Computed example of a mutant assay.
Amino acid sequence: MVSEYDFWLLDLDGTLVDVEWSYTREVFDRVGDRLGREFSDQEADIIWNGLTGSRDRQLEAWGIDPTEFWAAFHEEEDPLVRAEQTYLHDDAAFVADIDAPVGLVTHCQEFLAEPVLENVGIHDWFDARLCCTEQTGWKPDPQPVESVMANLGVGNNGHRGVLAGDGANDVGAAWNAGLDAIHVERVGHERRGQCVLGDYRVRSFDELF
C-alpha cells in the first residue's frame, strides 16, 4: 500500500494524534465564559472534530460569529498544556517507515502544532509542513495541499500521491488537488451522523496493510 504512492500527505488532529477529552471540555468552558454562551458536550465535540464539515458554517448556524469564536478559542488554548494532553494513535506508526516524501497539512495553528509534534516525537516524520491560515486557504481548498506538494518537489508532474485525514474536508482537499484520499474514521459514523466517502475508508490505518 505505502509503496503504491510517490508521496504521502497527512492531516494531524484526529488523524495521527488526538487530545484528551478533559482538555477539550475545559477549553470550551473558558471560551463559553468569554462569549457568554455555554457549549454542550455535543457542540464541543462537533466543533473540535469538525463533525459537520465547515466549522465556521456550523458556528454561524448557531448564531456565533466565527471570527469572535476563534479569537477567544486561540486565546484560551495553552500550547504546552495541549501538547501534554495529546497522544499519538498507535496505528500512525507506519508513517515513520514511509520511504517517500511525506508532508503535513493541518488546520492546527503553528503555535499549537509545533509543541504537539515535539511532545509526541513525530516532528521528524515530515519533509514539509503547513499550518493553514487565511492566507494559505483551508481544506477542502486545494491551495494548501498544492503548496506542500510544491515544497516536496512533487507538483503536478506525474507523481502519484495520497492524502490521509479524518474529515470530509481532507477528502475534498485530496480530490481537489488530484490525489487519492484515505478517510480514517476515528469517531464513528453514528457519532458523526454521516458517512465520509474516500478512495479508502478505514477505522484504523492498520486496515490498509
Score class of each variant (00 low, 15 high):
Gly188Thr: 11
Phe111Met: 09
Trp175Gln: 15
Ala71Arg: 15
Thr24Leu: 07
His89Asp: 06
Phe209Ser: 12
Gly178Thr: 11
Gln58Leu: 14
Leu208Gln: 08
Leu104His: 03
Glu60Asp: 13
Ile46His: 05
Gly36Arg: 01
Gln109Arg: 13
Asp78Thr: 09
Trp138Gly: 04
Ala164Ser: 10
Glu84Leu: 05
Glu84Cys: 08
Leu130Asp: 02
Gly161Met: 13
Ile98Ser: 10
Val95Arg: 04
His183Ser: 03
Leu51Lys: 04
Val81Arg: 14
Leu163Asn: 01
Asp99Trp: 11
Thr15His: 02
Gly167Asn: 14
Met1Ala: 10
Pro66Leu: 14
Asp124Lys: 13
Ala72Tyr: 08
Val187Trp: 07
His74Trp: 15
Leu51Asp: 00
Cys108Gly: 11
Asp56Lys: 13
Phe69His: 03
Ile182Ala: 02
Asn176Gln: 06
Leu152Phe: 00
Leu179Trp: 09
Asp41Ser: 13
Ile122Asp: 10
Thr136Glu: 02
Ala61Ile: 00
Val171Lys: 01
Gly193Tyr: 06
Phe205Pro: 05
Ala71Ser: 15
Leu130Asn: 08
Ile98Pro: 07
Asp124Gln: 15
Glu114Ala: 15
Glu207Phe: 06
Gly172Thr: 00
Lys139Glu: 06
Phe205Lys: 09
Gly178Ile: 10
Ala113Asn: 07
Pro142Leu: 04
Leu152Pro: 00
Val81Ala: 10
Gly188His: 10
Gln135Met: 12
Gly188Met: 00
Cys131Met: 05
Arg34Gln: 05
Asp11Thr: 01
Asp170Ser: 09
Ser3Gln: 14
Gly153Met: 01
Glu134Val: 11
Asp11Ser: 04
Asp11His: 10
Val148Asn: 01
Leu104Ile: 02
Ala150Asn: 07
Val105Asn: 01
Ala93Asn: 10
Glu118Gln: 08
Val95Asp: 04
Leu163Gln: 06
Ala96Gly: 14
Gln135Glu: 15
Tyr5Arg: 09
Thr106Trp: 02
Gly158Ser: 09
Glu207Tyr: 05
Ser3Val: 10
Phe126Met: 14
Asn169Glu: 15
Phe126Tyr: 14
Gln143Arg: 12
Thr106Gly: 02
Val202Ser: 08
Arg192Leu: 07
Gly137Thr: 00
Phe28Cys: 07
Phe73His: 08
Gly158Val: 03
Gln58Met: 14
Glu77Ile: 15
Glu110Ser: 03
Leu59Met: 03
Arg192Ala: 04
Gly167Ser: 15
Val31Lys: 01
Arg37Ala: 00
Gly161Leu: 05
Asp99Cys: 04
Glu4Asn: 12
Glu185Gly: 08
Ile122Gly: 09
Asp124Leu: 10
Cys132Gln: 15
Thr52Leu: 14
Glu76His: 05
Asp206Tyr: 12
Ala44Gln: 02
Ala150His: 09
Arg160Val: 14
Arg34Tyr: 11
Val184Gly: 00
Gln42Cys: 06
Val202Gln: 08
Asp13Ser: 15
Val187Gly: 01
Tyr23Phe: 13
Pro101Trp: 09
Asp41His: 13
Leu80Pro: 05
Glu110Gln: 10
Val202Tyr: 07
Glu84Asp: 13
Glu76Pro: 05
Gly137Trp: 01
Arg160Tyr: 10
Asp91Gln: 00
Val145Ala: 01
Ser3Asp: 14
Val171Asn: 07
Asp11Pro: 02
Thr86Tyr: 12
Phe73Gln: 00
Trp175Gly: 06
Val171Trp: 08
Gln85Gly: 04
Val2Phe: 07
